[in-house]
């Protein structure tokens, strides 16, 4: 069962997460009495990488317009910095005493801290990306809400001109997102809802056209046509709301995986 909810996050964190777990187990079981190696060089490399990461992260926070990202990201950066300091301290302690138990503990804590901090960073970014897709979905929902006040062909043409690029964007982004997800059920739900939206959109436009034509002829059936149009717009809205709901899911239901 996957632990990370996107393939990108999984590919970055899974290998290092496994290594950390393995080493923690080794340390717990070992107590081998062997001296620890000099880790100064690799720890220094990690510290340098963290300095760069923090620099990039801070500049991203400053330039971002996403208030939630601005709010969540600093804590993740602090976590990574603190973890790097633990690794540095451990390395210094091991230089003095290669058998130091507190140094080993600091190493494990530092490694875990880096893992947790980088994981939080990636999640902050991922959530921000999801919010962008949701904004696009909400734009489509806003257009759908307008469908029932369209009464002329000119307005319908404008409606289609406005809706089409948004729908294309939503379709592309949701499709891309569904391919990124590790959770099979979420992936399938997104694909199914997106397919429905794509199938329903030309039918909705057609129903709007029929309503306008009937309205022009002053026929009584216009009520029925309006009902049909509203039903289709409602169906599309429901599918989009479901897409928004699933986009925000990051937890796993083990039963679904079983």
């Amino acid at each position: 069962m996957p632990v990370f909810h996107t393939k990108t996050i999984e590919s970055i964190l899974e290998p290092v997460a496994q290594q950390v777990s393995r080493l923690v187990i080794l340390h717990e079981e070992a107590e081998d009495g062997n001296a620890m190696p000099d880790l100064e060089k690799p720890v220094l490399a990690v510290s340098r990488a963290v300095v760069n990461l923090v620099k990039v992260g801070r500049s991203t926070i400053e330039s971002s317009e996403d208030s939630l990202l601005k709010q969540d990201m600093p804590a993740a950066l602090l976590r990574v910095e603190a973890a790097a300091r633990l690794l540095e301290e451990a390395s210094s302690m091991l230089k003095v005493d290669p058998y130091s138990q507190p140094a080993r503990k600091k190493l494990i804590e530092g490694a875990r801290g880096i893992l947790q901090g980088t994981s939080s960073l990636l999640l902050c970014f991922d959530e921000s990306e999801v919010r962008k897709i949701i904004r696009e979905c909400k734009t489509v929902l806003d257009y759908l809400a307008v469908a029932e006040v369209i009464e002329t062909m000119e307005d319908l043409i404008q409606f289609v001109k406005d809706l089409s690029p948004c729908l294309t964007k939503v379709s592309r982004e949701v499709d891309h997102r569904s391919q990124e997800l590790t959770h099979q059920v979420h992936r399938e739900t997104l694909t199914r809802c997106l397919d429905s939206v794509k199938t329903l959109s030309p039918i909705l436009i057609c129903s709007m056209k029929i309503f306008i034509q009937i309205l022009r002829q002053h026929c009584r059936e216009s009520d029925e046509a309006a009902e049909n149009r509203n039903y289709l717009a409602g169906r599309m809205s429901d599918e989009l709301h479901e897409i928004i709901r699933v986009l925000q899911l990051t937890t796993y239901d083990e039963d679904e995986w079983d």
Binding site: Q19, P37, A111, L122
Partner: peptide, 28 residues
């Protein structure tokens, strides 16, 4: 354990670089 820690720190270094790349890519 000796090899393990060196390998892990190398992996951690790589992970941090990958995270940095992700941030830079999405930011651009």
């Amino acid at each position: 354990l000796r090899v393990g820690w060196e390998q892990l720190l190398t992996s951690i270094n790589r992970t941090i670089n990958e995270v940095e790349n992700q941030i830079l890519t999405r930011d651009s």
